[in-house]
């Protein structure tokens, strides 16, 4: 993997997103800070409704109605994204930042040929769109016989090939940052491996930073340099993949790892009890409190800020309390 540089490509500070629904506000993102450097692959990991996709869509300013960014700042490559409009946004979307979605079938227009759709993407950003440019792009993402594929309609391609085309389109403007929202969730394992390889290769060859949103810890563990674990609209733990997954500090991260079958016979699964937190409720203190084994009444009173735990950040009241460390040590060999 490419070594990350020092330059910050994406900087999110204090982001808050709120969906104003009929039944009251749903606070999908509740104060997220995230920084991504050049050439870095960062994973945003969490369960459904944890705010990982909303964070990603905020960067593109693509939050669907009634979603709204209520606080915070987002900078991409030094540009204030929240101040952009019209032309500026157009240059951002698909220009500096590209996005790859979960379902390529619904992101490609079924009525147009692949070539025409790629051409359109290049035209919007005022780039040359000759046939040879298109063929080169398709070659780069590993599509066999690109000349023929240009004339295909999306349904003539398999899911994996469609996702390759989407990645080709997203590469066309030489983006600094690729936002990938569950890009392999709809694909079979053998195809998933191919697509992840492709993204890794792009990261290595072009130094493009990638933010990968996924619910799959195993995918994140193999693909990312750094991960941020999200729960109920907040980052609860953030650090290098190795540190976080082999020695998780936050009870939620630990819980998640305990939920995953691990190809070792006789290791029982230890599920997290209860259901994912409801964001339409107001969480005064720690939102994980009702599901947490380590909780003390104090957890409900105030929300802990992200604490510096040396090699990573963790948001937990119990971190630093003596017996907490022991528990962490017991979990030490967590996964490897």
């Amino acid at each position: 993997m490419a070594a990350p540089g020092d330059k910050e490509v994406l900087s999110i500070k204090g982001l808050q997103v709120c969906y104003r629904t009929d039944r009251g506000p749903v606070r999908a993102v509740r104060g997220v800070d995230l920084s991504v450097r050049e050439g870095e692959i960062v994973g945003l990991v969490g369960e459904s409704g944890c705010g990982k996709s909303a964070t990603l869509l905020s960067v593109m300013r693509l939050l669907p109605f009634p979603g709204e960014i209520v606080a915070g700042s987002i900078e991409v490559d030094g540009t204030d994204v929240l101040a952009l409009n019209g032309k500026g946004l157009q240059a951002l979307r698909g220009g500096t930042v590209a996005m790859v979605f979960q379902d390529p079938m619904s992101t490609l227009n079924p009525a147009h040929q692949i070539g025409a759709q790629m051409k359109e993407a290049l035209r919007v950003h005022g780039l040359p769109s000759t046939r040879s440019v298109l063929v080169d792009l398709l070659k780069e993402v590993g599509i066999p016989s690109p000349e023929t594929v240009l004339g295909y309609y999306p349904h003539q391609l398999s899911g994996g090939m469609q996702q390759r085309v989407m990645i080709a389109i997203s590469l066309s403007c030489r983006p600094k940052l690729i936002l990938a929202d569950e890009p392999t969730t709809a694909l079979d394992v053998t195809i998933e491996a191919q697509i992840l390889d492709l993204l890794r290769q792009i990261n290595r060859d072009r130094g493009t930073a990638i933010v990968l949103v996924t619910h799959n810890l195993a995918v994140a563990s193999q693909f990312c340099h750094r991960i941020a674990v999200m729960y109920a609209g907040q980052i609860v733990e953030e650090g290098s993949v190795k540190d976080v997954l082999s020695r998780p500090l936050h009870p939620y991260t630990r819980g998640l790892i305990g939920c995953i079958p691990r190809f070792r016979k006789g290791v029982p699964l230890t599920p997290i009890r209860g259901q994912v937190a409801d964001l339409s409720e107001n969480h005064e203190g720690c939102a994980f409190y009702p599901r947490c084994d380590k909780a003390v009444p104090g957890c409900l009173e105030t929300l802990e800020s992200l604490l510096d735990a040396g090699d990573r950040m963790v948001r937990c009241h119990r971190y630093g309390v003596p017996e907490y460390g022991d528990v962490a040590a017991a979990q030490d060999s967590g996964c490897s």
Binding site: V189, A193, R262
Partner: peptide, 23 residues
Amino acid sequence: ALLSAIPRLGATGESRIRLQGTV
């Protein structure tokens, strides 16, 4: 190929058998 394609927690995923093509 199927087994080597599985993403595993803690593995690097570099030493996998790559299946060509699609089903």
